[in-house]
Protein backbone atom coordinates (compact mmCIF):
# COMPACT_ATOMS: atom_id res chain seq x y z
CA UNK A 1 0.00 0.00 0.00
CA UNK A 2 1.44 3.35 -1.00
CA UNK A 3 1.19 5.80 1.86
CA UNK A 4 0.54 8.68 -0.47
CA UNK A 5 -2.99 7.56 -1.42
CA UNK A 6 -4.60 7.69 2.02
CA UNK A 7 -2.57 10.75 2.97
CA UNK A 8 -3.80 12.66 -0.08
CA UNK A 9 -7.37 11.55 0.63
CA UNK A 10 -6.94 12.79 4.20
CA UNK A 11 -5.60 16.15 3.02
CA UNK A 12 -8.50 16.65 0.64
CA UNK A 13 -10.99 15.63 3.30
CA UNK A 14 -9.47 18.14 5.67
CA UNK A 15 -9.74 20.89 3.08
CA UNK A 16 -13.38 20.05 2.50
CA UNK A 17 -13.89 20.32 6.25
CA UNK A 18 -12.19 23.71 6.22
CA UNK A 19 -14.51 24.88 3.49
CA UNK A 20 -17.50 23.68 5.46
CA UNK A 21 -16.42 25.43 8.63
CA UNK A 22 -15.81 28.68 6.79
CA UNK A 23 -18.74 28.68 4.39
CA UNK A 24 -21.66 27.11 6.17
CA UNK A 25 -24.11 29.26 8.00
CA UNK A 26 -25.92 26.71 10.14
CA UNK A 27 -24.06 25.90 13.35
CA UNK A 28 -24.88 22.20 13.12
CA UNK A 29 -23.41 22.06 9.61
CA UNK A 30 -20.31 23.73 11.00
CA UNK A 31 -20.13 20.98 13.62
CA UNK A 32 -20.40 18.34 10.87
CA UNK A 33 -17.55 19.97 9.01
CA UNK A 34 -15.47 19.83 12.17
CA UNK A 35 -16.19 16.12 12.28
CA UNK A 36 -14.91 15.83 8.72
CA UNK A 37 -11.67 17.47 9.71
CA UNK A 38 -11.31 15.18 12.70
CA UNK A 39 -11.83 12.16 10.49
CA UNK A 40 -9.11 13.39 8.15
CA UNK A 41 -6.79 13.46 11.13
CA UNK A 42 -7.90 9.96 12.15
CA UNK A 43 -7.14 8.63 8.72
CA UNK A 44 -3.69 10.14 8.90
CA UNK A 45 -3.06 8.56 12.29
CA UNK A 46 -4.12 5.12 11.11
CA UNK A 47 -2.03 5.32 7.94
CA UNK A 48 1.11 6.34 9.74
CA UNK A 49 0.57 3.67 12.38
CA UNK A 50 0.34 1.06 9.65
CA UNK A 51 3.31 2.44 7.80
CA UNK A 52 5.58 2.70 10.82
CA UNK A 53 4.37 -0.64 12.29
CA UNK A 54 4.41 0.87 15.76
CA UNK A 55 4.70 -1.84 18.42
CA UNK A 56 2.63 0.19 20.88
CA UNK A 57 -0.12 0.93 18.30
CA UNK A 58 0.03 4.57 19.34
CA UNK A 59 -1.56 5.76 16.10
CA UNK A 60 -4.64 3.57 16.31
CA UNK A 61 -5.01 4.10 20.04
CA UNK A 62 -4.86 7.81 19.48
CA UNK A 63 -7.50 7.45 16.81
CA UNK A 64 -9.75 5.81 19.34
CA UNK A 65 -9.10 8.62 21.76
CA UNK A 66 -9.87 11.19 19.11
CA UNK A 67 -13.15 9.45 18.37
CA UNK A 68 -14.01 9.65 22.05
CA UNK A 69 -13.06 13.27 22.24
CA UNK A 70 -15.08 13.95 19.08
CA UNK A 71 -18.10 12.38 20.71
CA UNK A 72 -17.66 14.57 23.75
CA UNK A 73 -17.14 17.59 21.54
CA UNK A 74 -20.29 16.94 19.55
CA UNK A 75 -22.24 16.51 22.77
CA UNK A 76 -21.00 19.80 24.18
CA UNK A 77 -21.25 21.57 20.84
CA UNK A 78 -24.87 20.55 20.43
CA UNK A 79 -25.61 21.68 23.97
CA UNK A 80 -24.14 25.06 23.12
CA UNK A 81 -26.06 25.22 19.86
CA UNK A 82 -29.29 24.42 21.71
CA UNK A 83 -28.59 27.07 24.33
CA UNK A 84 -27.93 29.50 21.49
CA UNK A 85 -31.17 28.53 19.81
CA UNK A 86 -33.08 29.03 23.04
CA UNK A 87 -31.69 32.50 23.47
CA UNK A 88 -31.63 33.75 19.92
CA UNK A 89 -34.15 31.70 18.00
CA UNK A 90 -31.44 31.26 15.37
CA UNK A 91 -28.28 29.24 14.98
CA UNK A 92 -26.83 31.13 12.01
CA UNK A 93 -23.24 31.81 12.96
CA UNK A 94 -22.95 34.86 10.69
CA UNK A 95 -25.76 36.56 12.55
CA UNK A 96 -23.96 36.38 15.85
CA UNK A 97 -22.26 39.73 15.63
CA UNK A 98 -21.73 40.64 19.25
CA UNK A 99 -18.02 40.81 18.65
CA UNK A 100 -18.43 43.51 16.05
CA UNK A 101 -17.72 47.18 16.72
CA UNK A 102 -21.02 48.77 15.92
CA UNK A 103 -21.76 52.51 15.66
CA UNK A 104 -19.09 53.46 18.16
CA UNK A 105 -18.73 57.24 17.98
CA UNK A 106 -15.52 58.08 16.23
CA UNK A 107 -14.44 60.90 18.57
CA UNK A 108 -14.78 59.83 22.14
CA UNK A 109 -13.10 56.49 22.14
CA UNK A 110 -10.70 56.34 24.98
Amino acid sequence: MHVVYPVVVSALLFSIGVYGVLARRNAILVLMSVELMLNAVNLNLVVFDVWLKDRLHSGQVLTLFVIVIAAAEVGLGLAIVLALFRNRRSIDVDRLRDLSERDAPAEDRS
Partner: peptide, 16 residues
Protein backbone atom coordinates in the same frame (compact mmCIF):
# COMPACT_ATOMS: atom_id res chain seq x y z
CA UNK B 1 -12.95 48.53 11.26
CA UNK B 2 -14.86 47.13 8.32
CA UNK B 3 -13.08 43.86 8.97
CA UNK B 4 -14.25 43.86 12.57
CA UNK B 5 -17.81 42.96 11.65
CA UNK B 6 -18.25 40.31 14.33
CA UNK B 7 -18.51 37.45 11.88
CA UNK B 8 -16.38 34.72 13.43
CA UNK B 9 -16.22 32.86 10.16
CA UNK B 10 -14.52 35.82 8.58
CA UNK B 11 -12.08 35.90 11.46
CA UNK B 12 -11.30 32.23 11.09
CA UNK B 13 -10.92 32.67 7.34
CA UNK B 14 -8.39 35.39 7.94
CA UNK B 15 -6.65 33.28 10.53
CA UNK B 16 -6.30 30.32 8.20
Amino acid sequence: RLAQNGNTQLYVTGLL
